[in-house]
Simulated scan of single mutants.
Amino acid sequence: MRKWRSAVVTAAWVGVGTAAGALGAWQLATADSGVAAHSRPLDEEAVERALAATSATPSPPAPTPSGSRTHSPKPAERSTLRFTGGTATVECRGDGTVYLVSWSPADGFHIDDDVERGPAATARLEAEPSDDDEREDLPYEIDCGKQGRPVARVVADTDD
């Protein structure tokens, strides 16, 4: 009877370990699948703004007098920026402005609702720990830096 009970306990531990390993592998496989999620659902106006920003087609360049050259602005470049509280897909635009396309909190954090996504010289968001009592909030300013690549900096928390 004792051997049978030992075999059942061992089988249960193997089953739990296998399930935990499979769950962990699934989380790792889907963690950075390129689909960034917002920390909150978008309202209809936000969806329309996002669609307009991503589907806007540039107008054809105006004809120039012969012999003159125009400087066409650099196209917007998207990249993923990782920071302590999560990740953000950021667009650095040719005019030097930044636009937060999407963002996703890291495990143990959520992104505060008052995100300033741009386009502007600086975008802002705040990563708040889920255990509010133990860790400080992490307010970030994001801009396109000197090389035109996104840079996130923790700034002083002004909510207090």
Results as ranks from 00 to 15, higher is better:
Lys3Ala: 15
Trp4Val: 05
Ala7Val: 07
Val9Leu: 13
Val9Met: 08
Ala12Gln: 02
Gly17His: 05
Gly17Cys: 09
Thr18Asn: 03
Thr18Met: 09
Gly21His: 03
Gly21Ala: 04
Ala22Val: 06
Ala22Trp: 13
Leu23Arg: 06
Trp26Ser: 08
Gln27Arg: 14
Gln27Ala: 13
Ala29Leu: 13
Ala31His: 09
Asp32Val: 11
Ser33Gly: 12
Ser33Cys: 06
Ser33Ile: 07
Ala36Gln: 10
Ala36Ser: 11
Ala37Trp: 06
Ala37Cys: 05
His38Trp: 11
Ser39Gly: 13
Pro41Ser: 02
Pro41Glu: 08
Leu42Tyr: 07
Glu44Pro: 04
Glu45Lys: 15
Ala46Asn: 06
Val47Pro: 02
Val47Cys: 01
Glu48Leu: 15
Ala50Arg: 13
Leu51Tyr: 07
Leu51Asp: 13
Ala53Val: 05
Ala53Cys: 10
Ser55Glu: 11
Thr57Asn: 11
Ser59Leu: 15
Pro61Tyr: 08
Ala62Tyr: 09
Pro63Tyr: 09
Pro63Val: 04
Pro65His: 11
Gly67Asn: 12
Ser68Asn: 10
Thr70Tyr: 07
His71Asp: 12
Ser72Gly: 10
Pro73Met: 12
Lys74Ala: 11
Ala76Lys: 06
Glu77Ala: 13
Arg78Val: 10
Arg78Asp: 12
Ser79Ile: 03
Thr80Ala: 09
Leu81Ser: 04
Arg82Trp: 05
Phe83Asp: 01
Thr84Ile: 02
Gly85Val: 10
Thr87Glu: 11
Thr87Ile: 15
Val90His: 06
Glu91Cys: 06
Glu91Ser: 15
Cys92Leu: 00
Asp95Ala: 07
Asp95Glu: 13
Gly96Cys: 05
Gly96Tyr: 07
Thr97His: 09
Tyr99Glu: 02
Val101His: 06
Val101Gly: 02
Ser104Met: 12
Pro105Cys: 08
Asp107Thr: 14
Asp107Pro: 10
Gly108Pro: 00
His110Gly: 07
Ile111Glu: 00
Asp113Glu: 12
Val115Asp: 00
Pro119Val: 06
Ala120Ile: 02
Ala121Pro: 04
Thr122Cys: 00
Ala123Leu: 00
Arg124Trp: 06
Leu125Met: 01
Leu125Glu: 00
Leu125His: 01
Leu125Arg: 01
Ser130Lys: 14
Asp131Phe: 07
Asp133Lys: 09
Asp133Arg: 03
Glu134Gly: 04
Glu134Lys: 11
Asp137Ala: 13
Asp137His: 10
Asp137Ile: 05
Leu138Thr: 01
Leu138Val: 03
Pro139His: 07
Pro139Asp: 02
Tyr140Trp: 02
Cys144His: 06
Gln147Glu: 09
Gln147Trp: 05
Gly148Val: 03
Gly148Phe: 09
Arg153Glu: 12
Val154Met: 00
Val155Gln: 01
Ala156Tyr: 10
Asp157Pro: 06
Asp157Thr: 03
Asp157Ile: 04
Asp160Ile: 05
